[in-house]
């Protein structure tokens, strides 16, 4: 899939996006926003405000009932087959429910994101090792993920999301099960990815993550945009 030059500065473009579940539950209504390339962007709001739905729409796990979503210049809902697969390789997602393979080792779970883009086994091994070092989970390399604590599983899900050096990283409640020091490690990892050029969208309840931050914060209430604070930097 060729790079779209028009989107050099915009990674996500959403125009009047709504998501309505059957029979008539509006999860999101008329959401319009742009997220720049290399930006760290916070999505906040109470449970049920529509944060997770918004992330799912961006990574094409769900399709909008109305509106347009462009990621890296591509209408993500028009992409099919290999084109969609190749775009997804550039999007790393840390899901709220982790989506880890419980019967596989930590290393295998992280490696899966790189295997689908046919990275060399040696490079995969090295990258897994680096990530586990950054998250202080080196000793868990060969542990079956079902045997990990919730906090550890959360960090493995995040490691998998950033493993393939994606251009867009979507993170749903990254610190829900973590203490303050581990939260710091996670944010460091995300910041490092952002400095390497990735765009980061974080959906969170945790006000400590965004209160002191210079990044933009979008608050959702009942599926609509309640406020959008301006940040200092992309």
């Amino acid at each position: 899939m060729a790079e779209n030059e028009n989107t050099e500065n915009t990674m996500i473009e959403m125009i009047k996006v709504s998501r309505i579940y059957e029979p008539n539950i509006t999860a999101l209504s008329d959401i319009s926003l742009s997220v720049g390339t290399g930006e760290m962007f916070f999505l906040i709001g109470r449970s049920g405000a529509g944060k997770t739905t918004l992330l799912k729409l961006i990574c094409n796990m769900e399709v909008p009932s109305k509106g347009l979503i462009e990621v890296a210049g591509y209408d993500i809902n028009q992409l099919k087959g290999n084109d969609l697969a190749h775009l997804r390789q550039k999007i790393g997602v840390a899901y709220q429910d982790f989506k880890l393979l419980g019967d596989r080792t930590v290393a295998e779970n992280i490696a899966i994101a790189m295997e689908v883009s046919y990275k060399k086994p040696r490079a995969i091994k090295q990258r897994v090792k680096d990530l586990l070092e950054q998250l202080q989970l080196v000793e868990k390399h060969n542990t079956i993920t079902n045997e990990l604590s919730r906090g550890e599983q959360q960090r493995i899900a995040l490691a998998r999301a950033v493993a393939n050096s994606p251009r867009l990283i979507l993170v749903d409640e990254p610190t829900g099960n973590l203490d303050a020091s581990t939260t710091e490690q996670v944010m460091e990892l995300l910041n490092r990815s952002r400095l390497a050029g990735a765009t980061i969208v974080i959906a969170t309840h945790d006000s400590s993550l965004y209160r002191q931050s210079k990044h933009r914060v979008l608050e959702l209430r009942n599926g609509t945009i309640h406020s959008l604070t301006e940040g200092d930097q992309p």
């Binding site: 087959g81 290999n82 997804r88 393979l101 689908v116």
Partner: peptide, 16 residues
Amino acid sequence: RDELELLKLVGATNSY
């Protein structure tokens, strides 16, 4: 099923 769905989400092609 979980693994295959995950593979799709992380960008595995249908051929893969």
